[in-house]
Simulated assay, not measured.
Amino acid sequence: MKKLYLHDDCIISPLGFTTSKNLENLRSGTTGLQKLNKNDFLDTPICAGIVNSEILTETFAEIGNPQDFTKLEQMMLLAVQGVLDKNPELDLDKTGLIISTTKGNVHLLDDLADFKKERLFLSNLGNIVKDFFGFKLKPIVVSNACISGGLALAVAKKMINAGKFSEAIVVGGDMLSKFVVSGFNSFQALSENDCKPFSKDRTGINLGEAAAAILVSDLPKKNSVNISLVGDASANDANHISGPSRTGEGLYKSIQNSLKEAQISSEAIKAISTHGTATLYNDEMEAIAISRSELGEIPLHSVKGYYGHTLGASALIEAILCKHMMLNREIYPSLNFTENGVSAKINVVTAYQKSINLDYVLKTASGFGGCNLAMIFKKEGENG
């Protein structure tokens, strides 16, 4: 089976419109969350990661007319442009395009403005990206709750192994809307303050909006250290439409099957990028699955304290961050952690760490409907 190599990427978020700016803020522990006492989503205050619309519009105007595209489309197109700028030789006639999102342009249900109703369809979102840049192959849209961004990478790997293409751009994104915010609020899952993943005093999630894109290929870059996706697996725990398994069974199976595909034991894993939403049940489930996998001593973090939960973009952004952690030999802190609030023992990173060799990193994700995903990334071309 061919490996999937992670190449150039671009993150568009409240922390910045380039990956390098995002990394700078992650290292310094700077959050992109803000408390919104007055907001367009609920009658009560929320804490969320919001992309500044004015700055986004000004930036997007350099590549297109902002009036022709929704906020989500602008973020996703800018992310793809950031990748293409680094790869001007890329043949878009042969390059695959995989889109990850949970809700797409669902905000248009409230007001279509000057857009046609077809803009609501996820398939249309794929075509927007395809047509803007001139991709020739039909885009693939992945929408499986909050594992979508990571699952899109797994789909890219499978499509490359099936011979559909040898290179692809994976782009994920979601934005805040009344539909999304009110939905999470109905579960009483939102926190008015900055979220605290895995902490005893956690009070719920913060939502966020962001987009990210990455170029993937079946070939590594020559004379360079490379990061590859060597194991991935997804399992559904079939527990509840919104509540995760109490035993972590689906995520546990995902981790075990990804280890099997990567042909390594749990002892090889050097760090874990968790889903870490800061809800009572998700954090507990994830900690149990990690402990059952004999990974309780391994350093782990959640980046939800920086971004909030960016839904269909989250697992893709976090996979990109795994890549840079491995290349830069660093681990970013898990913001706002106070005291362990889960029943299983876990090792939460609370301060920026550097000069750490990360041969293998595990990325986990979970979502509504009982879906779970585990991915294992490997560093190649460097010893020690």
Rank of each mutant, 00 (worst) to 15 (best):
H324V: 06
I214L: 07
D43Q: 14
C146Q: 05
A319Y: 00
I376D: 04
M326Q: 15
V216L: 09
I288D: 06
Q188M: 13
G82A: 11
G134D: 11
K253T: 10
R246C: 02
I98R: 05
I320F: 05
G96F: 08
M76Q: 12
A238L: 13
E209T: 08
Q81M: 10
Y332A: 09
P88I: 10
N52P: 01
S148I: 02
G312M: 08
V142C: 09
C322E: 06
S199H: 06
T364P: 09
L176P: 03
I147W: 03
N206E: 06
D43I: 07
S148F: 00
L120P: 05
Q256W: 07
D110W: 02
L219Q: 15
S123R: 11
I147L: 04
I241T: 12
P88M: 13
S123Y: 09
V51N: 01
I255P: 03
K117H: 08
Y307A: 03
L153E: 07
K157S: 13
A351H: 15
S234N: 13
Y5N: 04
I272T: 00
K71Y: 04
S245F: 05
C371P: 04
S228C: 11
E297L: 12
N257Y: 12
G163F: 11
L311G: 08
I214Q: 01
H275F: 15
L215N: 01
R292E: 14
E54R: 10
N223E: 15
F60T: 02
N124R: 13
I50A: 01
K157T: 02
D194M: 12
